[in-house]
Simulated scan of single mutants.
Amino acid sequence: MAVDLTKYISSYKDFPKKGILFRDISPLIENPDAFREATNRLAAFAKKEHANLIAAPEARGFIVGSPVAYKLGIGFVPARKKGKLPTATVSASYGLEYGKSTLYMEKKAIKPGDRVVILDDLLATGGTYSATAKLVKQLKGNVVGAGFIIELSALKGRNKIGDVDTMSLIKY
């Protein structure tokens, strides 16, 4: 029987700033049944896309992407914040629902033709996804899927994904 993942999402008004309704996956990842269910669903999606790598942005994307990569027996590529990677990198800047940032990926992380599914905890405006996809494409990888635990539909982040197969476990 499938677990109702919506029961494991907390909502906080005016966090991290006034006007934002923060959707928190902490209760989901704290519950072994809910976390396993979310991981299994995202892994089935990535397997269907024939991914040979999972890429995910810092920080909660790591929590979502790493267990999926492990379950599928494929590699995991982190998209990190500035100063966190020791070797040569590529970078991509993006806007968030409440600010701006830049992500970095090691140049050696993705090889031409790699089939990459990008996973994250939340799709809001699509900025974080877009930056991660730019990094994959700079390294000549193919983004073949995008998966999220939560999608905030009103913010239209899916519009930035384009024709890539996309999965959201929960939509608000």
Results as ranks from 00 to 15, higher is better:
3 V>K: 12
4 D>Y: 07
5 L>D: 14
7 K>M: 15
8 Y>D: 03
9 I>Q: 10
9 I>A: 15
10 S>M: 06
11 S>R: 15
12 Y>K: 11
13 K>G: 00
16 P>K: 09
17 K>C: 14
19 G>I: 05
20 I>Q: 02
20 I>M: 04
21 L>A: 04
21 L>G: 00
22 F>H: 11
23 R>F: 14
25 I>F: 05
25 I>P: 01
27 P>T: 08
27 P>D: 07
28 L>I: 12
28 L>Y: 06
29 I>A: 09
29 I>Q: 06
31 N>D: 15
32 P>E: 09
36 R>H: 08
39 T>A: 05
39 T>R: 11
40 N>H: 07
41 R>A: 07
44 A>W: 02
46 A>T: 11
51 A>S: 13
52 N>K: 07
53 L>D: 03
55 A>N: 01
57 P>D: 10
58 E>G: 05
58 E>K: 00
59 A>Q: 04
60 R>G: 08
61 G>I: 04
63 I>T: 08
64 V>R: 01
66 S>M: 13
69 A>Q: 02
71 K>G: 09
72 L>V: 10
73 G>A: 08
74 I>F: 08
75 G>I: 02
76 F>Q: 02
77 V>H: 06
77 V>F: 02
78 P>R: 04
81 K>L: 03
83 G>S: 05
85 L>G: 05
87 T>Y: 14
90 V>T: 03
92 A>K: 03
93 S>C: 08
97 E>D: 09
97 E>F: 10
98 Y>I: 14
101 S>I: 01
102 T>F: 06
102 T>Y: 01
103 L>V: 02
103 L>T: 00
105 M>H: 13
111 K>N: 15
116 V>Y: 11
116 V>Q: 06
117 V>N: 07
121 D>R: 10
125 T>M: 11
126 G>Q: 06
127 G>C: 09
132 T>W: 04
133 A>N: 13
135 L>Y: 10
140 K>S: 15
141 G>L: 10
143 V>K: 05
143 V>W: 08
143 V>R: 10
144 V>F: 06
145 G>E: 06
146 A>R: 03
147 G>E: 04
148 F>Q: 04
148 F>A: 11
148 F>R: 05
149 I>T: 06
151 E>R: 03
151 E>Q: 11
154 A>V: 07
155 L>V: 10
161 I>A: 11
161 I>H: 14
161 I>W: 14
162 G>Y: 13
162 G>L: 12
168 S>Q: 01
169 L>C: 01
169 L>T: 00
170 I>G: 02
